[in-house]
Design a protein around this nucleic acid. Structure first.
Lengths: 240, 240
DNA sequence: CGGGGACTTGATAGTTTTCAATTCAAGTGG
DNA sequence: CCACTTGAATTGAAAACTATCAAGTCCCCG
């Protein structure tokens, strides 16, 4: 211990030690040395709800980890119609490896904190470290599974089931510590929920009201939702 | 040359040499030795239209390469509603790495040929060969991009645009040699198209008729489609 | 040539959207 | 502290789109 400075005993950067993304995030596969290297180039950043992290068609210059908050990924058509194609929660990795240009827009849905890395550094680590690519691959596959689940929701469910599916998704993702949160603030506005479900604001509102009147959920202040019975919500969502 | 038999000069298996999947498929990253090893355990198989390759909820015991034909990936709800969440063309790799159970059904849409590998062999090669995992990762990302594009179609496009989008997708994927095929046989029945677009058979039929009457497409014998002007189809699909 | 599945077409019903008005909550400034 | 403004959300009525139900037609195949 006396001043020995072997590489193997180097310490992880202070900010990483306390970082939510290390537990389950992509950084968890990195060696202490890689962590130090990556940390040297990373910038922790706070973004406000509504801020754009990257725009559809822009050059991809950085990737990021989400430390807390919710980020929405969306696509827009030429005439303005919009579809949210994914939500990302801590400790998700954000960015599309191996592509120069982003095919979607990433925008903070809530206030959020992210840890941003220059593209070049990540690309190098991917080449050097198979474990790191494996971790990214695993997350890509998870996102693909989620996207396909959502395709079933978009294509085949009724408005009622769609809204219930959305609430179920949030209840199961908003708090990484819980399997199902019985009470939570919605991270999305009615307009965003509509864009996620392929509905209009009015239809979302009507179906929320119906779920409330049916006793499946309790709503306070428009944004706070309580779910007395997870099974009833799951049934309403049409989930097996 | 005189009878030298060094490993580096071993020959790729005869079947692999002629294999479509080697050109652009995952096998293209393998060394000759790995190819020999993989080939020892692979079985080439012909499946008829409608045959199930793997079922939702089943154990995943094999992965496969598609050599020719089209395979549809679909999800079903408890009450029978169904959604096709992806189409795979040669030389796509089929299977969900790192998961024991399939979350979807893979079924041949047309007669097809596939090259099947036992799960264990692939899993080992993934561990040994970072290039192979990289190739799988790349394909996963491509599928994720396609899934998200389709989410926009499912959530925000009209029936007319959906059908045009489907035809555009087929025209750009049915023949790996062409960027856009002006004439092709539809690999899916009207029922399958409906399940892919989140519509009913009748609506698909009506929109096909409308596109035909508008001169965007020519239909012969129900299954054969000709597209006189790719731009008109693209516009009808609402693609930027 | 007949049977049967796949596809089309028509009429009607149902769901979701659109348009419009209203309520609500939270700030802002007098 | 109370109007007033503003943006978000709810509610209502009418319109539009897609699904459903019900015949037909076409085409492949024996």
């Amino acid at each position: 211990m006396q001043g020995k400075r072997m590489n193997a005993e180097a310490e992880a950067p202070q900010v990483c030690k306390a970082c939510e993304a290390r537990h389950g995030g992509v950084c968890s596969t990195l060696s202490v040395l890689q962590l130090i290297e990556l940390n040297r180039h990373s910038t922790r950043r706070r973004v406000g709800a509504g801020d754009e992290v990257i725009g559809q068609g822009e050059q991809i210059s950085t990737y990021s980890n989400i430390l807390n908050g919710v980020v929405k990924l969306s696509k827009m058509m030429a005439d303005g119609r919009q579809q949210i194609v994914g939500l990302q929660f801590a400790p998700d990795f954000m960015g599309r490896p191996f592509l120069k240009e982003s095919s979607l827009t990433a925008e903070a849905a809530t206030d959020a904190e992210i840890c941003a890395f220059p593209r070049a550094v990540i690309d190098r680590i991917v080449n050097e470290s198979p474990d790191f690519e494996h971790k990214l691959h695993t997350q890509s596959l998870k996102e693909l599974d989620e996207a396909r689940d959502w395709m079933l929701t978009l294509g085949r469910k009724t408005a009622q089931e769609k809204v219930a599916s959305f609430l179920y998704l949030i209840a199961t993702h908003i708090n990484p510590m819980e399997k199902f949160s019985k009470s939570f603030d919605l991270p999305l506005s009615r307009a965003d929920i509509a864009d996620f479900l392929g509905l209009t604001i009015e239809t979302v509102s009507r179906q929320m009201t119906k779920l409330r009147k049916d006793g499946v959920i309790v709503i306070e202040n428009n944004r706070h939702v309580t779910v007395p019975d997870a099974h009833r919500l799951k049934d309403a969502a049409g989930v097996d």
